[in-house]
């Protein structure tokens, strides 16, 4: 049986939206899939060596469960984003959910291929030296070279 393939496009760089690509990619790899993640726009933030600045905001995120109802005016206050991020990280830890760095390492260990969108790297003037070394740089056409032959293709 031919090896199954999965491609994921990761476009978000917030703490909550960083999880699905890494969870799905690492799990698919464990199931024997050949996996590639194409990081573009804000998803590029997930390639930074240091992921401690990946945050979550309660602002404009009405579905986020909060311990107490919080009016938008309060969510706007300085420090709220850091507080929400800290609370979310504590919650993840308490429930035995892996950290982003751990999941990303597990992806790399399982040979998940990371591809960064060269155009958005240029657009945001990102410094490649701030990214992990296990990244290839390519464009949309290169993505289709792999994605066109996949069994599963997801946009996150």
């Amino acid at each position: 049986m031919a090896t199954k393939k999965m491609a994921i496009i990761a476009t978000k760089g917030t703490l909550d939206m960083a999880y699905p690509p890494f969870i799905l990619a690492s799990t698919a790899a464990a199931l024997g899939y050949d996996v590639q993640i194409f990081f573009t726009f804000y998803g590029l933030q997930l390639l930074r060596k240091d992921l401690s600045n990946v945050m979550i905001s309660p602002l404009a995120n009405p579905a986020m469960p909060m311990p107490i109802p919080m009016p938008v005016m309060v969510q706007m206050l300085p420090g709220m984003e850091s507080m929400a991020t800290m609370m979310m990280k504590q919650k993840l830890k308490k429930h035995g959910v892996a950290s982003l760095t751990e999941l990303r390492d597990l992806c790399l260990e399982a040979d998940v291929k990371f591809v960064a969108c060269q155009m958005t790297v240029d657009l945001f003037e990102f410094d490649k030296s701030e990214f992990i070394k296990d990244v290839e740089y390519a464009g949309a056409a290169a993505f289709f070279g792999f994605a066109g032959e996949t069994d599963i293709c997801l946009f996150v």
């Binding site: 969870i23 799990t27 464990a30 035995g96 892996a98 399982a110």
Partner: peptide, 14 residues
């Protein structure tokens, strides 16, 4: 024990 999805599967595979 104490680990949540997908860690039990990833560690089983390893």
């Amino acid at each position: 024990s104490g680990l949540n999805c997908p860690l039990p599967i990833l560690k089983t595979k390893k």
